[in-house]
Nucleic acid binder design. Sequence first.
DNA 1: CTGAAAGCGCTTACAG
DNA 2: CTGAAAGCGCTTACAG
Lengths: 337, 337
Amino acid sequence: MTTIADVAKRAGVSVATVSRTLHHSAKVDPRTRERVLQAASELEYVASPTATSLASGRTRVIAVVAPMMSRWFFASILTAIEQSLREDDYHALLMVLEDQPTEGHSRLAPEMFAKRVDGIVWLNVPLSSQEEDLMRRLALPMVCVGAPIGETPTVMIDDRRAARAGVEHLLALGHRRIAFVGTAVESIAHMSTPAARGDAFREALIEAGLPVREDWVLDTDWTADAAAAMVEPILRGPDRPTAVLAASDEMAIGVVGAARRLGLRIPEDLSLVGIDDHTFAAALGLTTVRQDVPAQGRAATSLLLSAIEQGADHPPATRIELGTELIVRDTSAPPSS
Amino acid sequence: MTTIADVAKRAGVSVATVSRTLHHSAKVDPRTRERVLQAASELEYVASPTATSLASGRTRVIAVVAPMMSRWFFASILTAIEQSLREDDYHALLMVLEDQPTEGHSRLAPEMFAKRVDGIVWLNVPLSSQEEDLMRRLALPMVCVGAPIGETPTVMIDDRRAARAGVEHLLALGHRRIAFVGTAVESIAHMSTPAARGDAFREALIEAGLPVREDWVLDTDWTADAAAAMVEPILRGPDRPTAVLAASDEMAIGVVGAARRLGLRIPEDLSLVGIDDHTFAAALGLTTVRQDVPAQGRAATSLLLSAIEQGADHPPATRIELGTELIVRDTSAPPSS
DNA sequence: CTGAAAGCGCTTACAG
DNA sequence: CTGAAAGCGCTTACAG
């Protein structure tokens, strides 16, 4: 393994000079510089990140904490975050926390983060109160995506507006019997997104002078399977909604499946609107409320990196909200009279 | 930041003793041990991974290289890999290489891996020849998943058998006019999976005494959108296939979309079989050939970690092939006469 | 502009 | 069983 000393020897300079020319470009004689660069490239020298970290106190590694990867949102944003980190010469250390948070024991340990990463991107993973304590004691720069934790700076969409855009589209088409799939089941009740979207749904109905049938506001764990299972019963029989707003496109796909099994045609018998603009949305012709996930990823990393590089004194923006956009495709239409 | 010296002082021992009791448990007097543990816990001591790495020469970090996260297979396997690494006290450094490989310039740089990770899990990312060179010179323990690179140990399914299972199911149902979606478009031509599945498709038809219509073997980039776009033309008009085998469930979902637009009912007018058992497959009632992705992830990490821990002398298994299983749901049925 | 040296926080022979 | 010391490969004041 070639080290900085090898380069120094070959270039006939001290290791300090090698270090300087390879970094700060601080005042190095052009000819010395040339020799060092030459030697480094001949030896195919790569500095040890580990030694650099120990000496500098910076790891240039960011932890990205996600609750799962199997959901489109998380996979997409992880991609965006990893790429924008790498552009800035940082690396992404991934941690997937699939278990649910429970009071009384922590899925988190200080060793996962302490002295290992310079900062954390937190992707909508709900925390128990003791886990929140632990994270606070770590005192690492952190940014949340999707939902805030305490006072932590957060990048997110306006969940209420997104949901309202969906309902209002259905109302405008003339629907009066609308169901909502996607308030939270017990296990994910800590997450704010389901509640925000559900509340907005109810509000929009009330403002339109319509009753809110709570039996048409369906709790799920936000998977396609669960959405299908929950929605099927209320889609049976004549007293059924003419439209469904799903809080995510993945759940909307579950509704597509349920409708198919029941022989309901979309949009003739049932209108359907999702939220996300999932990769499959276009192929399936799904009307949806689009969110720009890569933009959220980029915003999160730039927020975090500037907090890291400027030190904790510059208080970073506390909240960045990105817009959403209704995309009308084939799954929404006026109710058949 | 509390260091090993702080712990040593508080416990009244040397740092060497602290190090020993915290690791090898090698011969430490029980009472000394107790004092050290006590001191460490009182101080909430966490060893610096960076210093440990520098001193030990091991980082306990594994690079996971993926071509994209937006595909179900990659998101699923990444989850499995990250979790099994963490169980063994390793960490996953993620790198997403979305660009296509091109001769003449490398997306890879030695700094991404050298002295930074102890090994690499390579997820079906095609390499240009110079990139392959670079990886070889790095001489890091490596394992491939999904498709092999040169002689690198690989965990994968038998792609030919998986595809055959799909075709043979359709043949058994009585189909004679079967199309295949999922040979490779130019940009992913380096990947072996599309070719293997396509070849197996052709073989199965030939063995059944059927002609292979090459205009029904469709190149795509393996997205739902592309599959939909490619399949639509051949689904139009009376001279159309009665069944489609898609090389992935994601492409099968694209076919569902295309069929919907054309007013074709599944399975009455068109049978459809995918490969994967994607999260959405059950909700959509998709008949598919299931692969166990978490098992592949676990196999890959255990292969890699044992190569790392036993040193390069023990040549690891060169290939692990996991089985697949046909799952019949609602999208496949005998052709309507 | 450059070098000698201390220091980052560990691990690991080497003595005892 | 335990300690003193060297060493891992860098960075960064401090002199010059």
